[in-house]
Design a protein around this nucleic acid. Structure first.
Lengths: 343, 343
DNA sequence: CATCGCACCGCAAACGTTTACGGTGCGATG
DNA sequence: CATCGCACCGTAAACGTTTGCGGTGCGATG
């Protein structure tokens, strides 16, 4: 199963076998054929450790995610879709994608540090970027190629891909205002994820641009889960001068909000306009359907992979993109959850 | 950063450094302290490739998942909970968990074959087991320690962990019958996943035990998504002698079903009893809340890890479990979605 | 015929570890 | 004082690759 056995069987040197398998030019086409045939017959596949040790590269890309279900930042199929896009690109370069879950008991920074120092991966995609994210400075300092899924305030120049939360907030507020709403609540996350700050700031700017005063009483933070939505809605119903509309930082919240409204005898949509963030698979099947924003996560994955390759010496020339900092547009998908006020 | 540099700095041999770091006995406690201090100061961490090459073991465990969003057996939150449990066990043994997503364009069997032949991992957890799953025979033949999340008909003895679908089907049918239902539909998956067969067979047995004839017209298969639920419900509404209850192979279906019922002017629960499979985070926040089944995915993860270790030579003695084949119980959580008929 | 170039291949070093083996020095024991 | 045992440490081989360097043989060229 090793290259040595293969070489002995063929009566050639291991160097020749290696060259044949790696498609180098200086090997007779006849012997190459023999080698490839024998390798296939014997089911030979190069040992990763040996190759990595020699080459100083593992041909493995890591993708870190956090497994804390309470603070999960995305819906149920979010990462699966992204992975799919990432792998599509990597497959062309014989790169392997491995997902490195950071357990809820573990610290994301330590997690990245362990992964990097073991020289496990040639590159890294990190997600759930915090506003101040020590991982970013660390990766820059170590010179590890990486891309962040989500902006951060930290550190020097690095590649990242994010979604257009400014556009979403501006568009959603404008839409709600046009439909007669002036009292618009925000359901945000309590975690330190950068999205939280960006979204709230955009929301405030959008309100200001329509001459609406910011009211901290209707800007609430909680878990990004169905339960979190329920709790936020619950607190919101107790506010004097109840809002007529809500903007959500995450679509998972919607289900809990719908539920709480039902319990209060209110109808989502008619009695409380709601606009969600991302179009999850279930958005179109809620009642009322949720107004939210379309984005191709598969394409986000593709772009993540390309941005990462652009930062890796071995692939730089194939992907001359430099430092990629891209805000991905999100397109509003009208639903039934934000009808005109009083209409 | 290599052991050599560390040794030079300390004026000891690399062998001593290695022994000190690995906690071997034959090294002076004073030098050990010096080595550990220097390693920490210089941020030294052993190179994985070198170690793996020498030891013939990678200390990495793979967990394969499929990212095809249409036929996915489970979503992000399911697996994240399981990962969390798995990692809890592995962390104690300095084993790393890496998740190996199988892209929707890839074949799961090829995927496993690639992973194994590259000697990437010391052990494997596979999910979404098919009724006939070539991966299982392959892994047995190759002698790779593995555990399957889900039963299969394939191959020889191997460890697996599964959930009690028989119990769920029997209990749910009994419950529905007790509540006056005799015409109970089944919403199943069209994929070849073994769960599909087990669930349907259990459903048929349960019907028979209550003297209810099996009617293929109300056993439908589709995507395990919200859309799939919508479509299945749509087809079901067109059936003559419409069923009064539905049993779901997956809770994601519920949202689409609720929606389709609403469109038809029917109320989920009151006009169509519904029992889902697993208690997803949203089950309690749907309106009506979904009757479904509780299971600790964290504990499933813990058991998966232990079963795997029991099959690995280096850990056999610490986990003397032999071949683990366990059906995990699921506990019914009553909701509002399956009230008594006509009540 | 001598020389050159070229296609092809073998040799051996190197990547960073771990570990069996042997060697050193020292205190204790006879 | 000779010897033994032991604690500790250095040496070097080995894991499976890749790759620079040099060598062989052959056809072509002068």
């Amino acid at each position: 199963m090793s290259i040595k056995e293969l070489a002995q069987r063929l009566n050639v040197s291991i160097g020749t076998v290696s060259r044949a398998l790696n498609g180098r030019a200086d090997v007779n086409s006849e012997t190459r054929k023999r080698v490839l045939a024998a390798a296939k017959a014997m089911g030979y596949v190069a040992n990763q450790s040996g190759r990595s040790l020699r080459q100083g590269a593992t041909n493995v890309i890591g993708f870190t995610i956090e497994t804390n279900v309470e603070t999960r930042s995305q819906g149920d199929t979010f990462f699966m879709s992204v992975f799919d896009g990432v792998q599509k690109v990597f497959a062309r370069h014989k790169l392997d994608l491995v997902v490195l879950p950071c357990s809820s008991e573990d610290d994301p920074f330590d997690h990245v540090r362990r992964v990097v120092s073991r020289q496990f991966v040639d590159g890294l995609i990190i997600s759930a970027t915090q506003r101040n994210d020590p991982r970013i400075d660390f990766l820059i300092e170590r010179g590890i190629p990486f891309v962040a899924l989500g902006r951060s305030q930290s550190g020097g120049e690095h590649s990242w891909i994010d979604m257009d939360f400014e556009g979403v907030a501006a568009g959603a507020v404008a839409r709600l205002v046009a439909r007669g709403h002036r009292r618009i609540a925000l359901a945000n996350t309590a975690s330190g994820i950068n999205l939280s700050y960006i979204f709230e700031a955009s929301y405030r700017r959008a309100l200001a641009s329509h001459g609406i005063a910011y009211d901290p009483d209707i800007v609430l933070r909680g878990e990004i889960t169905e339960r979190g939505g329920y709790q936020i809605c619950d607190r919101l119903l107790a506010v004097a001068d109840r809002p007529t509309a809500m903007l959500l930082v995450n679509e998972n919240l919607a289900i809990g909000i719908y539920r709480r409204l039902h319990e209060a005898g209110l109808r989502p949509g008619a009695d409380m306009a709601i606009i969600g963030l991302r179009q999850s698979p279930q958005a179109r099947f809620l009642a009322p359907t949720l107004t939210c924003h379309r984005i191709s996560l598969h394409d986000v994955g593709v772009e993540l992979a390309q941005a990462l390759l652009a930062g890796m010496p071995a692939y730089k020339d194939q992907y001359p993109l430099g430092v990629v900092q891209k805000i991905w547009p999100m397109e509003l998908v009208p639903g039934e959850s934000d009808p005109p006020l009083g209409g």
